[in-house]
């Protein structure tokens, strides 16, 4: 299991690198979910979702709020079946490796937006 987890982390790191290099172009499904689709060598889809969870406890009449951020990573095959489904809240090391991937996707989107903005602005 640990070996498989290490292998998965290696692949997540590879995806992160490819995303940074612009080799993998992600699509925004909603403000916290991104997907990457491919048809070769076979149709598949990767979904990454950021989830924020807040837990509230009443201690001595005060509400204590604790917020945590984790990531859900899923790989779906051509039949729409989940091949891999990883919940970062259940494994800290996977969550830690998914965080840079999410940041890379966000950064790519911001960069794309800036480049688009540059193309529509009049030259001075």
């Amino acid at each position: 299991m640990s070996h498989q987890k290490d292998e998965l982390i290696i692949y997540i790191n590879k995806i992160t690198e490819s995303t940074r290099l612009g080799e993998m172009l992600w699509t925004r499904i909603n403000p916290t979910t991104y997907t990457w689709s491919t048809d070769k060598p076979k149709p598949a889809k990767i979904i990454l979702q950021q989830v924020q969870r807040s837990t509230r406890r009443i201690i001595g009449g005060n509400i204590i709020v604790r917020t945590s951020t984790h990531y859900l990573f899923k790989v779906i095959d051509q039949h729409g079946q989940e091949v891999i489904a990883v919940d970062g809240s259940e494994d800290e090391s996977i969550n830690t490796s998914l965080s840079p991937l999410y940041e890379a996707i966000l950064s790519g989107f911001t960069q794309k937006g800036i480049e688009f903005l540059k193309t529509i602005l009049p030259d001075h």
Binding site: I29, N30, P31, T33
Partner: peptide
């Protein structure tokens, strides 16, 4: 809920999001 408001409401196909 707002954090998962679909970017394209006509294409909300990602399961369980």
């Amino acid at each position: 809920l707002n954090s998962v408001r679909p970017t394209d409401p006509a294409n909300e196909e990602t399961p369980y999001t």
